[in-house]
Design a protein around this nucleic acid. Structure first.
Length: 488
RNA sequence: GUCCCCAUCGUCUAGUGGCCCAGGACCGCGGCUUUUCACGUCGCUAACGCGGGUUCGACUCCCGCUGGGGACGCCA
C-alpha cells in the first residue's frame, strides 16, 4: 500500500476514540498528550473515529467527542469536520480499504480465510474451560493451512501469526518491551461482515495516514506486538510507540461510572474550566519539576515523553478541585473576560436571564479567591446580581434583631454622604462613626453582612458595599433594618 | 493460569550512586492575619513494599519475592 511520508521531522500523531457513549476522562488524557506533542513540535494532530463496533457506535457520541475536544480547546488538523489528505477519517467509511488490504495479505499467504463459526469457537472455548479453567484459549488454527474453501459460506480473515521468535520495540515511555510470539494467535483481521477488528483497522489506518507516533493508554500495550507483526507483514515502516500509565479509580480499579464522574461533559457541567481539566490530567503521569499549575501554552512548551512516569495513578477529586481553584484564582490563567464568559451559563442556570457583565467583573476580585468551580463562583456572585439578596433564614434569625436596627441605620448614615465609594473610603467613614459611638466593627459586621448579602459568610463588608454601589447598599441596609425592627 | 507492565508520604509526584536521616503539591491538623467566609502566610503529621546482591557508598544498578494493574473476543 502507499505509505505517505510523515514529512521530515514533523510528527503525525492521532487520537482515535470509539464513539460509544461519553468521552472518558482517560481518553481525554490520551488525546491531550498527543495534542501537546503535535503542538509542541509543529506536527499534525489527527482525529480518527473508530466506529467499527457497530453495535455500540452512535452518531450522538460522535458529536459528543467533537464537542468535548472543541470545548477543551484541542483542535485537530485532520479528521472529521476539517478533512485532510488521508481521509476519510471515520473507519466505517474506509471498509473497502480494509477489505483490499486483508485480501492482499491472504494473496501473499500472510493471512487466510477461516470458516469456523462463532458457535464452533465458543464450543472449543467451553470445552477447554471445562478441562482447565485457567488455561488461555487460543484459536487452534483449524483453517490455517486449508485451501478447500467452501462455496458461499461466511468466513473471517485471520492473520497467520508467527509462532516463534519475539517482538521487541522501544516504547517512548516504558523503554524496551519484548514479547514472545508464542503468545500470539491467529487473530481475526476482518469479520465475516467485512468490518475490521481493532488491531487491523488501526494498523491499516496508521500506516495509510502516515502516523509517526502512536501514543495511547497502557491498556493497549498488549496490542502493540501483534500490530508490529502486521506492520512487518505489510512491509511498512514502524511508527514510534508511547504508552501512558493508567488513570485508576481511588479504589485502584479501572475508572468507571460507579467511581463518580468519568465523562468530560460531567466536569464541564460541574464548573471546571477546560484549562483546569487539561492541567489536572497532564500532571497525571507527567511532571515538570515542582510545577503544579500550567497554562495551556506552558504545557505545550514543557511537554516531553521523557518526563512521563510509568506507574499507574489514582484519580483524586480533591487535587482536581485544587487545580481548578488555582486557575479560577489567577487572572493570568483565567482573565476577567474569560471568567465572565465561562461563568455566565452557570448564572443563567440559576435563573439570571440577563447577566450584567460589568457587575460580574466588578465582583470578580471578591469571588476569585473563594470559588473552586464555576458553580461556586455563580453562587458567590448571586447576591451581587440580584435586586434583593436571598435571605438565609438562620442568618436573619440570628443577626437581624431589634437591637441591630440603630446599628444598621447608623452604618448607613455614616457612609451615605461619602463622596468616594471605594472600599478604603467606606471603611474610613464607618470607622469614624464607630469610634464616635464607642463601637467596634464586630458589633455591626454580621448584621450588616446579612443585610447586604443575605448570608452570614461573605467577602469583606466594605468590599461588598463598594461593589454593590451606593444606592443598592443603602437600600439593603434599610430593608434589613425594617425586617429587624419588625421582629419581637 | 499465561504473557506484558508497574512499585517514593493517604493521593499526584521530584529524585537517574554520594547534594536525601528524601523535596514540592493536594488532603488532614495547628499558629498568624481577620468584621464572617475565604485568600495569604508560617508550621506539623506522613513515604523509598520485602529479601538478597553489586559498590567505599544505594531511593537510585542487578536478581528474587510480594503486591498492584493490563491483556488473553468475529469489543475497542
Amino acid at each position: 500500500m502507499t505509505v505517505p511520508s510523515g514529512g521530515p521531522g514533523k510528527p503525525r500523531v492521532r487520537f482515535a476514540p470509539s464513539p460509544t457513549g461519553y468521552l472518558h476522562i482517560g481518553g481525554v488524557r490520551t488525546a491531550l498528550f498527543n495534542w501537546l506533542w503535535a503542538r509542541k513540535t509543529g506536527g499534525t494532530f489527527v482525529l480518527r473515529i473508530e466506529d467499527t463496533d457497530r453495535e455500540r457506535s452512535t452518531d450522538e457520541s460522535r458529536q459528543v467527542i467533537f464537542d468535548a475536544l472543541t470545548w477543551l480547546g484541542m483542535d485537530w488538523d485532520e479528521g472529521p469536520q476539517v478533512g485532510g489528505n488521508f481521509g476519510p477519517y471515520t473507519q466505517t467509511e474506509r471498509l473497502a480499504l480494509y477489505r483490499e488490504q486483508a485480501d492482499k495479505l491472504v494473496a501473499e499467504g500472510k493471512a487466510y480465510r477461516c470458516y469456523a463459526t462463532r458457535e464452533e469457537l465458543d464450543a472449543a472455548r467451553e470445552e477447554l474451560k471445562k478441562r482447565d479453567p485457567k488455561a488461555e484459549f487460543k484459536y487452534p488454527g483449524w483453517w490455517r493451512d486449508r485451501t478447500d474453501w467452501p462455496e458461499g459460506k461466511k468466513y473471517v480473515i485471520r492473520f497467520k501469526a508467527p509462532q516463534t521468535g519475539v517482538v521487541t520495540y522501544v516504547d517512548k515511555v516504558f523503554g524496551e518491551v519484548t514479547t514472545p510470539n508464542s503468545e500470539q494467535q491467529d487473530f481475526v483481521l476482518l469479520r465475516s461482515d467485512g468490518v475490521p477488528l481493532y488491531n487491523f483497522g488501526a494498523v491499516v489506518d496508521d500506516i495509510t495516514m502516515g502516523m509517526t507516533l502512536v501514543a495511547r493508554g497502557r491498556d493497549h500495550m498488549v496490542n502493540t506486538p501483534p500490530q508490529i507483526l502486521l506492520y512487518e507483514a505489510f512491509g511498512a515502516p514502524l511508527p514510534d510507540f508511547a504508552h501512558l500509565p493508567m488513570m485508576l479509580a481511588p479504589s485502584g480499579k479501572k475508572l468507571s461510572k460507579r467511581d463518580g464522574a468519568v465523562s468530560v461533559t460531567e466536569y464541564k457541567d460541574m464548573g471546571y474550566t477546560p484549562d483546569a481539566v487539561l492541567n489536572y490530567l497532564v500532571r497525571f503521569g507527567w511532571s515538570h519539576g515542582d510545577q503544579e499549575v500550567f497554562s495551556k501554552q506552558q504545557l505545550i512548551d514543557a511537554f516531553s515523553w521523557e518526563a512521563c512516569g510509568r506507574g499507574d495513578g489514582k484519580f483524586d477529586t480533591k487535587k482536581f478541585l485544587a487545580i481548578s481553584f488555582e486557575h479560577l484564582k489567577s487572572a493570568e490563567l483565567t482573565p476577567d473576560d474569560a471568567y465572565v464568559a465561562r461563568v455566565t451559563p452557570f448564572l443563567e442556570a440559576r435563573g439570571f436571564s440577563k447577566v450584567d457583565v460589568a457587575k460580574v467583573k466588578s465582583a470578580l476580585p471578591a469571588v476569585r479567591e473563594r470559588a473552586r468551580t464555576l458553580i461556586e463562583a455563580a453562587d458567590a456572585l448571586d447576591f451581587f446580581l440580584r435586586d434583593e439578596p436571598v435571605m438565609d433564614a438562620k442568618a436573619v434569625e440570628k443577626f437581624l434583631v431589634p437591637a441591630s436596627v440603630p446599628l444598621l441605620r447608623g452604618l448607613a448614615d455614616s457612609i451615605r454622604t461619602s463622596e468616594a465609594w471605594a472600599e478604603a473610603d467606606l471603611d474610613a467613614k464607618a470607622h469614624a462613626w464607630l469610634a464616635e459611638k464607642g463601637l467596634l466593627i464586630k458589633d455591626v459586621a454580621q448584621s450588616a453582612r446579612v443585610a447586604l448579602t443575605g448570608r452570614s459568610a461573605s467577602p469583606g463588608l466594605f468590599q461588598v458595599i463598594a461593589i454593590l454601589g451606593r444606592e443598592t447598599a443603602l437600600a439593603r441596609l434599610e430593608a434589613a433594618a425594617k425586617i429587624a425592627a419588625a421582629r419581637t
